[in-house]
Nucleic acid binder design. Structure first.
Lengths: 242, 242
DNA sequence: GCAAAAGTGTTGGGCATACACCCATGA
DNA sequence: TCATGGGTGTATGCCCAACACTTTTGC
């Protein structure tokens, strides 16, 4: 019965994703601890238990601010993970108990998806924070059920982009080439896209405006830069916004 | 700081939706309590605190089973509600503290969406359970933030149906007419649909099979019945299932 | 016979798909 | 001059939206 038992703890975890022009990266925190008497090093998603008087969304935002004091991001809650075996690995429990100095039974975590412009967010205090961008495809075994959370986050991005492709502009640099944008879609959906059809679609989006600026010092014809115009977007979408 | 404070409690709430051929209904529980010394009667979504060793999904399923011992349902977690002011109304806090016989500070709730065939689920133990189907449009002021949760649940249904219209067959009776199905879409998206285009779309779905059975005793031409064939559906969708 | 809802086809426009060659640049 | 990726147009099929009249039935 509930009364006789430890309350579950509630935490927030952030899946912070970026795109470097070639592939998706996720921001992970390095973690060191002891597994029995063996020291170990691995990684986890950024996150923490919530404070008693803190809204979930506020906690997620605060975690973001703690890592990237300035970068803007697309931030959405996407799923709550609450199975008991999240804390099946004693290594995770010991690590957390040591970190928060209290007994931990079970943790229900609320996962947030954050999409950031990786170029704006390259300069976090990486020494202090032990934060690291890791290509999603190269992510190893993470703490708790963070691998699952990451996987579901990637699916969530696909859903969002399907519903409204504009979300990709949170990931692209302010000035981007057509092939960066196309590569993003190709990586996300894991399929090649037709170059001509893709550029047709791009030019049909009136809020993607071509600049009079081109790549420099590339060993081939220089690609044109584009930018996303948020005002035009809002105008052509009746004021919708996330 | 977290350590000095009461832990948040974790609960599960279910938004159980049905469609009676004309409109959406939500299943609500009657609640009686005292507001100061004034007795009050109102309604809430079915839900409860989770047990210490209970997965969230299991809790949601168990709540369903408690109300409809037999009915099958489409069940999905859709959002976690965790703002502090969920428990802003002292009436709610007092009611809950009285129900669970413990002090309650804050509650983080995980909301589940359940779509049921209302015809299968008409016969719950309504005396015992105080459960009631209420047309969504006529729902009054609910406990906690349950009005918000209901609103977001309806949006969620729209999303699901957009992604894959098959989910509506969880709501329709086993045998349904074309106009029942059309009305469902019209109610859900709050817009009229073209009758001919709709029936064209229906007949293009090979998993919606027309029966040799018609309405009876209606004061107009009798409508044909259709049924949803799950096996055909799975075949034509490569084995996807929710 | 009338009121009420069921059923049924055609057309046009827009959107996605498929597909191949020349261009600019640095090495 | 060559290797590398950038940029461009047309033809086809499909799906969606628009639109009106006849049929059946109970009263």
């Amino acid at each position: 019965m509930y009364l006789d038992s430890i309350y579950p703890h509630v935490s927030v975890d952030c899946v912070i994703l970026g795109f470097d022009g070639n592939q998706f990266h996720v921001l992970l925190m390095q973690r060191t601890g002891l597994d029995g008497s063996q020291p170990f090093n691995d990684m986890k998603l950024p996150g923490r238990l919530i404070y008693a008087n803190e809204d979930l969304d506020a906690a997620a935002q605060q975690i973001m601010n703690g890592i990237f004091p300035s970068a803007q991001s697309f931030l959405t809650q996407f799923k709550c993970f609450g199975s008991q075996d999240r804390t099946a690995n004693p290594r995770d429990v010991h690590w957390l108990e040591n970190a928060v100095k209290q007994k931990i039974g079970r943790i229900v975590t609320v996962a947030y998806l954050n999409l950031v412009r990786i170029s704006d967010a390259m300069h976090f205090a990486s020494d202090t924070l032990q934060a690291k961008w890791v290509p999603v495809k190269e992510v190893g075994s993470l703490a708790f059920d963070h691998n699952t959370i990451l996987l579901e986050a990637m699916q969530e991005v696909r859903k969002f982009v399907n519903m409204d492709p504009y979300v990709v502009f949170n990931l692209l640099p302010k000035k981007f080439t057509a092939s960066q944008m196309r590569t993003l879609f190709e990586q996300l959906f894991d399929q090649k896209m037709d170059v001509r059809n893709f550029s047709k679609k791009m030019s049909s989006m009136d809020f993607v405006v071509p600049l009079d600026e081109y790549e420099q010092n590339v060993a081939h014809r220089a690609a044109r830069y584009y930018r996303f115009d948020r005002k035009l977007y809002i105008k052509s979408h009746g004021g919708f916004s996330f």
